Structure formats: C-alpha cells, structure tokens
Amino acid sequence: MKLYKTLSSATQAREDVTALKISIKGEQFPSELLDFPNLEELYLEGNCKEFPFEGITWERLKVLSIKWPSFTGDLSLLFRLPKLENLKIIDTPLKTFLLPLGHAAAPVKSLTIKDCGFKSLPEEIGMLGSLTEANFSGNNLSALPHGFLDLKLLKRLNLDHNQFKIFPDLIKKMPNLSHLSIDHNPFPEEEKERIQRIFHIWVN
C-alpha cells in the first residue's frame, strides 16, 4: 500500500489513493480531501479548526488518525463512517462527542481519544458494540455512563490521567475486560484502599 504524503500528488491519482498522510497548514479543511473514494487509511495533522459535515465519500476508510491542537469544531460525524475500525484522536480539543442516533454506528474496534479535554462519554457509547480497545487517557472524565456496560467485547481500557475520585464500579461487570489502567487520577487514600481491597487493583 503506497502512502501518499502530499495532497497535490494524491489528487493526481485520486482513484488509486488508499493511504494518505498530510499536515493541513491552514485553519480551513481542504475540500479536495473529501473526494477519495478508495481511501482506507488517513492520517491528519496540522492547524485545522473545523471539520465538514457534508460531502465525505470515505466509504472504505478503515483507519483514521487526527491531531489538530487548534480544533474548535465537532467530530461526531466520524462515527457514521461505514467501515471505520480504528479511530485515533490525539491532542485535539473536544468538549464531547455524539454517536449517530438513528444511524448505524461505525464498526470501531479500537478507539483512542487522548489528551482532548472532554469531560464525559455519551450514554450511547454502547452503540460501539465492536469495540475491543479504548484509550481515554489525558482527559477530564470523572465517571462512566451506564451504557458502557454494553461494550461486551471490550478487552483493554486506559483511563490514566483523568479526574476520577471514585472508582467506576461498573467496570467489574464487564466480562471480557482483561487489561485496565487507571493511574494518575485524584483518588483519595481511602478510595485507593477500597480499590485494592475489592478490585485487587493497585493504582498510582
């Protein structure tokens, strides 16, 4: 699989492009990026502030990585992409994200939303029924929604560097979860002792 690294070279071979990695220099999302019908992997960095809600033809996209420190918009539309399996959003400010009620959710297996500053996960997180790995480290989470229990295939969960003061007990009810990291949260000492006693987890 050839990885294209400039938009100009990619647009000259639009039908052949399956993997693209570019840095967006300006604040505006380049509209020509929307029309790559055979794109399977996309890696985006730069200074983009908004993401378009219409015109996307990424029907085959499986892997998407975004790192936009200046972002001010919404990325909820990404959860409608029909083939998306691996979504990674890093250092991209997000207040929250929504899942597509009334639409089929993307078949995401691996989800990373790291260092994005969001405070809560939507109750509809359970719509991502294919999820096996989630990394929500470096945010401002203090609780997990009840819908989290619907992630029955989840095996790995990273909640490091958040704002948990009480351990989310519902995690214990997740049958396939085999790896949990929840270090560097502001647990009081008595809560750390409870976590060790009841859940047999030692947290830093």
Rank of each mutant, 00 (worst) to 15 (best):
L20Y: 05
T132S: 14
F79N: 13
I166A: 04
L3C: 11
L78R: 02
K155M: 14
E54N: 08
S8L: 13
L42W: 06
I201H: 03
S8Q: 15
F53D: 15
I56L: 15
G129M: 02
A106E: 06
K67H: 13
L7A: 12
I182T: 07
L159A: 11
G117Q: 06
S130F: 06
W202C: 05
I56W: 06
P168V: 12
E54A: 08
E123H: 07
K95L: 14
G117A: 03
F51C: 08
S178M: 10
P30Q: 12
H184W: 03
F164N: 02
I198C: 01
N185A: 13
K155D: 11
I22R: 01
L170P: 02
I89A: 05
T72L: 06
W58T: 08
K165L: 00
G129I: 02
Q196A: 14
S178F: 08
Q12T: 15
S137D: 00
F148M: 15
I56D: 09
D115G: 15
I89F: 05
D74L: 00
L149Y: 01
C48K: 04
F53R: 11
L154S: 09
T57G: 02
M127N: 08
G55Q: 09
P168Q: 12
L87D: 10
P107G: 10
L128N: 09
P188D: 11
P52S: 09
T72W: 00
A134D: 09
T112A: 13
T18E: 15
F164T: 01
P82R: 06
P82Y: 03
N140C: 07
A19E: 14
P93S: 03
Q12N: 12
R197V: 02
K155Y: 01
I195Q: 00
F79H: 07
A10L: 08
E27V: 04
G102C: 10
L61K: 06
L157P: 04
T132M: 09
P145S: 07
P188G: 12
